[in-house]
Structures are given as structure tokens and as C-alpha cells.
């Protein structure tokens, strides 16, 4: 992948990131679906399209035809505006440290836009062109999602590399090869990676690494570089 696709993933050229991890391998490997009604295979369900339509309408009326960031009370930097639609459901609640509980409307330490961006084009919810940052498992990183480097950069703007190393050494060797969301889930009330028992941690390593082809040179592997 070159720099231009990285910066402008609104182009429809497929971004060929290799699939590192089998989906559904562990609970930790399941991501939170944020793109409502969207199915990677089938495109957009009717329900999804209706939702998107409503959202576009609301957003349009709120922003009076200007970009979302124009009005600080009615744009995507206001979590309430986002959560009026993106409330989540029982399977994908908007909770936890990055969701509604602590940093949500009552304590606005982080807004949705701090991580997801505000989008530049104003075509925020036209899903195929959106430049909103989507956090995806490596196996779901395709031409509709945000490139690895951009996803991780959003996380790294708060979580420093040194802190990540202290939290767990495995952050180091995966920094360039996995999206943070490959392991972490941010909107459930608790990230399943937190407080894992030692043996469960080991199981995470084994579950993923035993599916990697044996001839991959893991120490020279860079998913953003295209080929190993």
C-alpha cells in the first residue's frame, strides 16, 4: 500500500492488507460492529440504508449544509449528537472507558471525534467514501476500512508506546503488524484483554500464531508494507 491510498482511502482501489488472523478465533478477536447495518459481503441492508438515510437527514438539518465540524454544539465532536443515533445495542453497547460511561456526555474527556475523526468531506455517512476512522480487526481490514497505520495512530495519540510496553511487552512486536482493535474492544463496559490470567494470555498467543503459515518470517513481517 502506498502513501496515497493510506491518506485517501475514499478511492475505491482495494487496499490489499494480508489477513493475519482467522476471524472468530477467540472472543478477543471479535470486534464491535460500528457500521450499522453494513455487511461486508452483501453491502447495505435495507434497515441499514434507512438508518443511514435518517442519519443523513438529521446531520444535514443540524449542520445546515456545512461540514460537521462547523457548529460545535451540533457536530460530531459532541458525543450526544453521535449517540442520538449510535446508541449501540445489547450486543454492541456504547460503554466502557471510551464509550458512554466515563468519557461520554457526562465527562467529556474524549469525544467520538477524538478517535474517529470528524471527516473532511462532509459525506460522513456515505459509507464507501467516509473518512471517519473505523477500528477493525486485522481480518476485516479491507477497502472499506481505515488502514492499519491510521487506526493505530488514533490510539497512539493518547496511549504512548512506553506505556504500552509497560502494560504488556507484546505491544512492541505487534505495533506494525496488527491493528489495536484486533485484540482490544473499546465500547463494551470492559475490554476483554484487561486482567487476563497468565495462561489465558498465553492462549491468545497460541491461538493466533498457530494459524500463521509456518514460512512467514514473523520478525520481518510488515502488513503495511504489502509483502513480507
Amino acid at each position: 500500500m502506498n502513501g496515497s491510498t493510506l491518506a485517501k482511502h475514499s478511492s475505491r482501489a482495494p487496499i490489499s492488507l494480508p489477513i493475519l488472523v482467522t476471524p472468530g478465533l477467540t472472543d478477543a478477536c471479535k470486534r464491535v460492529k460500528k457500521d450499522y447495518g453494513h455487511d461486508e459481503q452483501k453491502g447495505y441492508s435495507m434497515k441499514g440504508l434507512v438508518r443511514i438515510g435518517w442519519l443523513a437527514l438529521i446531520v444535514f438539518s443540524l449542520s445546515s449544509g456545512t461540514a460537521h465540524a462547523a457548529n460545535p454544539n451540533k457536530d460530531v465532536t459532541n458525543p450526544e449528537a453521535c449517540q442520538s443515533c449510535h446508541r449501540g445495542d445489547s450486543a454492541h453497547p456504547m460503554l466502557g472507558l471510551h464509550g458512554g460511561d466515563r468519557y461520554g456526555p457526562t465527562n467529556q474527556a474524549a469525544s467520538c471525534a477524538d478517535c474517529h475523526g470528524v471527516g473532511e468531506s462532509g459525506s460522513l455517512h456515505e459509507a464507501e467514501q467516509t473518512d471517519i476512522v473505523r477500528f477493525t480487526h486485522m481480518s476485516e481490514t479491507n477497502n472499506l476500512s481505515t488502514p492499519l497505520a491510521q487506526q493505530n495512530q488514533a490510539c497512539l495519540s493518547c496511549h504512548l508506546g512506553t506505556e504500552l510496553r509497560t502494560a504488556h511487552w507484546t505491544h512492541d512486536p505487534h505495533a506494525n503488524t496488527l491493528t489495536c482493535a484486533s485484540c482490544h474492544q473499546l465500547h463494551p463496559s470492559n475490554d476483554p484483554m484487561r486482567g487476563l490470567a497468565k495462561q489465558t494470555q498465553t492462549k491468545q498467543c497460541v491461538d493466533c500464531h498457530s494459524t500463521l503459515p509456518n514460512d512467514i518470517d514473523i520478525f520481518n513481517y510488515s502488513s503495511s508494507g504489502g509483502s513480507p
Partner: peptide, 14 residues
């Protein structure tokens, strides 16, 4: 036995 990290994030290795 794991070595100390060699290099800085995001290019550190063990």
C-alpha cells in the same frame, strides 16, 4: 528468558 526490548516502539523487538 525474554531479553530487554531492542529498539523503540513501534520498532522494538525481543
Amino acid at each position: 528468558i525474554r531479553s530487554e526490548p531492542q529498539g523503540e516502539y513501534p520498532d522494538a523487538n525481543y
